[in-house]
């Protein structure tokens, strides 16, 4: 019998899941973030948009405690990630899942083992049960079971993305970070990715932080859009508010030809009848 760890007794959905305050990042003399603030509430899908090189990936890596900002505070689940002990951080790390821009599958492990790895690390489940979980996750991301024995090098780019997503979801995270989830997917798969996130969101009240350049995904998934320009969050608001902002970046982004087309088919904001 394992020693019983205390249950998280109180479930408070009112503290922000991610809270960033006055964050500064500097590489040499090059300043990426200048006093950035951002809140992500429980159960929200927040999309982070911004030009190439505006510091989206860097911001995500800082929230994930992979990099330390020059200045400022980042709290995840109310816990400061850059000043916490390794043990506290380990607890947070079990509650989030990450899809990296390049997938980051372990190249020496098969698809099956990639997804099974985090489950095995828990040492709570037997192999037979893990098999069922892996198959379930493969079903969820729409990967046929016969691909389970393949090695990552033998997969197409889109498959890598979906399997990396399955691995990110292996531990049933409450918070999911997605860096460019639909880049490299065909339109059909992008569509099914969107419906997967929708259904997960409904089932698990998942909180999602997503970096994307894909307007269709952005429009159909986001509760809120955080616009990253000039090292700050220019706005963190629903699509209909953000798309009307008067800023050169936003004008180019949403009111260009592609933006208009995507917005014209935008569904009404979710939650409103």
């Amino acid at each position: 019998m394992r020693p019983a760890t205390p249950m998280p007794e109180l479930e408070d959905e009112r503290t922000p899941v991610v809270q960033i305050r006055d964050l500064w990042t500097q590489f040499g003399s090059f300043v990426v973030h200048r006093g950035l603030d951002l809140d992500v509430m429980h159960g929200e899908v927040v999309s982070l948009v911004g030009g190439s090189g505006s510091g989206k990936t860097t911001l995500m890596r800082q929230v994930l405690a992979l990099e330390t900002p020059t200045r400022g505070e980042v709290k995840v689940f109310g816990i400061p990630v850059h000043s916490s002990s390794a043990a506290t951080l380990k607890k947070i790390r079990k509650r989030w899942g990450v899809l990296f821009q390049e997938g980051a599958l372990y190249s020496a492990l098969s698809v099956y083992d990639n997804i099974a790895l985090p489950l095995r690390e828990l040492r709570a489940f037997d192999e037979d049960f893990i098999r069922d979980v892996v198959m379930l996750k493969l079903d969820m991301v729409d990967i046929e079971r016969r691909h389970a024995v393949k090695m990552p090098a033998d997969l197409s780019g889109g498959m890598v993305k979906r399997i990396a997503l399955a691995r990110a979801l292996a531990l049933e995270p409450e918070l999911v970070f997605l860096d460019e989830p639909t880049a490299g997917l065909d339109p059909d798969r992008s569509e099914s990715f969107v419906s997967l996130v929708h259904s997960l969101h409904r089932k698990l009240q998942l909180t999602v932080v997503m970096i994307t350049h894909d307007l269709d995904t952005l429009v159909s998934l986001s509760d809120r859009i955080a616009v990253l320009v000039e090292g700050r969050v220019l706005a963190n608001a629903p699509l209909n508010v953000v798309s009307k902002l008067d800023h050169p970046f936003v004008r180019n982004y949403f009111q260009g030809e592609r933006g208009k087309r995507a917005l014209s088919v935008a569904p009404p904001p979710r939650g409103t009848p």
Partner: peptide, 21 residues
């Protein structure tokens, strides 16, 4: 769902006690 414009804090449910399975 809370009003999406302002991150509402009042509409979310109060803390619930979660018990082991």
């Amino acid at each position: 769902m809370p009003d999406p414009v302002a991150p509402a804090t009042s509409a979310a449910p109060a803390p619930v006690r979660i018990l082991p399975p």
